[in-house]
């Protein structure tokens, strides 16, 4: 039962509430560091770590944080985890740190992290918050890797230089969100065409 719940919270972040394609949050790092898959993976893991830490602590402290100043409290907690990531990267992964540049400290203003703190960790148990953080983190990482795969293979592989520069990021994201919208519209249309008769849910 409990494991099932954990899985549900985890799964939701990857597809239904995918931070990039469904919620369209945290765009700046998504676009800026998706020029290579390596950078994308590094950023995804760093953000997931911050998300996990902040969700866990905020959820554990949710009864003690005064509501009036909860946002500054979240920011300090998030900033603490971001500083950890920063120092860790500087010490052990200097090349990645250089490639990601100011986008490592900028995780602190990533709306995904603050959004999960306010929308989820603030109201739910620690274990659910961990599942939520891992799911959203995985969804974010996955989205970054998808964008980076397209950009790197077209840009560095086929030599369409534009794709690994700034315009390519915007173009890729535009078409990907367009594709997601298109899929949703088709699905809706099909549901309307088939009507209620074919839908098992209505018969119950």
């Amino acid at each position: 039962m409990k494991l099932n719940n954990f899985w549900l919270e985890f799964k939701k972040g990857i597809i239904v509430e995918n931070p990039t394609f469904a919620l369209v949050l945290g765009l700046c790092p998504t676009l800026a560091v998706s020029n290579t898959v390596q950078n994308a993976l590094g950023m995804g893991i760093a953000a997931t770590f911050v998300l996990l830490g902040s969700n866990m602590i905020i959820s554990a402290l949710r009864r003690f944080l005064p509501p009036a100043i909860r946002i500054p409290c979240y920011i300090v907690i998030i900033a603490a985890f971001v500083t950890m990531v920063e120092l860790f990267m500087k010490a052990y992964l200097p090349a990645l740190d250089k490639a990601l540049g100011i986008f490592v400290p900028l995780i602190v203003v990533n709306c995904i992290v603050l959004g999960r703190a306010e929308a989820f960790a603030n109201k739910n148990k620690v274990i659910d918050s961990i599942a939520d953080a891992l799911g959203i983190g995985a969804g974010f990482t996955l989205a970054l890797i998808i964008i980076a795969t397209i950009r790197e293979s077209l840009g560095a592989g086929l030599g369409v230089l534009m794709m690994i520069m700034a315009p390519g990021a915007l173009l890729t994201l535009g078409f990907l969100i367009g594709a997601v919208n298109w899929y949703r519209i088709i699905k809706k249309k099909r549901a309307l065409e088939l009507g209620c008769a074919s839908c098992a849910k209505c018969k119950e």
Binding site: P167, L170, L171, L173, G174, I177, N181
Partner: peptide
């Protein structure tokens, strides 16, 4: 959104 991103591109 999609057309906005493409324009921005």
């Amino acid at each position: 959104l999609p057309v906005t991103f493409i324009t921005a591109s």
